[in-house]
């Protein structure tokens, strides 16, 4: 497999790999490093790539495992930044600013979700994969995925409603 052929295969989903890594690792730089690592791994194993049924799904599974491993080793090092000092909302701010603010807020809410739910939400709501594809990537059955997704969505809605009402009052 030549470099061009490899890039043809990898290019369509490299951003998805990056976004999933960023969803889990939060830091932009770390996500970049992770993506690089995964692409290099794929490049090294490009000889076997023809054997994979779905390279993209395989890459996403790799990304998930790699990022979770990274997180585990980070927890082991006891390096954890906890966001606890959210800025309080000013009701007099313009609508546009408020919306952008609440978009940030969504990202913070998602950050607090359990990793499993984060991954599923990312794959479904951002990357728009079919449930069958997600099931293949995560080696889970579709029902379990739907349940986790529903839980994640409801948690986000509840928290958003809370802050939304807080902003209005």
């Amino acid at each position: 497999m030549t470099q061009d052929e490899f890039l043809d295969v990898v290019m369509p989903f490299k951003d998805k790999v990056f976004r999933l890594a960023k969803r889990l690792l939060v830091s932009h730089e770390e996500a970049e490093d992770a993506t690089q690592e995964i692409l290099l791994k794929l490049w090294k194993n490009r000889a076997q790539m023809q054997n994979y049924r779905n390279v993209e799904a395989f890459a996403m599974t790799m990304t998930k495992n790699f990022s979770l491993d990274k997180l585990k080793s980070k927890h082991a090092q006891n390096l954890k930044i906890v966001h606890s000092n959210y800025q309080d909302k000013n009701a007099s701010l313009q609508k546009q600013v408020e919306l952008r603010d609440s978009v940030d807020w969504v990202s913070k809410i998602i950050e607090e979700l359990p990793e499993q739910q984060k991954i599923i939400l990312q794959l479904r709501d951002v990357e728009q994969y079919e449930f069958s594809e997600i099931a293949e990537m995560l080696e889970m059955n579709e029902t379990a995925i739907r349940v986790a997704l529903s839980r994640a969505r409801k948690t986000i809605r509840e928290k958003l409603t809370k802050t939304h009402n807080y902003g209005v009052r």
Binding site: L99, V106, S107, I156, L160, T161
Partner: peptide, 13 residues
């Protein structure tokens, strides 16, 4: 309430 949620998804895409 839902607006920022979907805005966020489109943005992070």
């Amino acid at each position: 309430v839902y607006q920022p949620l979907f805005a966020y998804f489109s943005q992070s895409q």
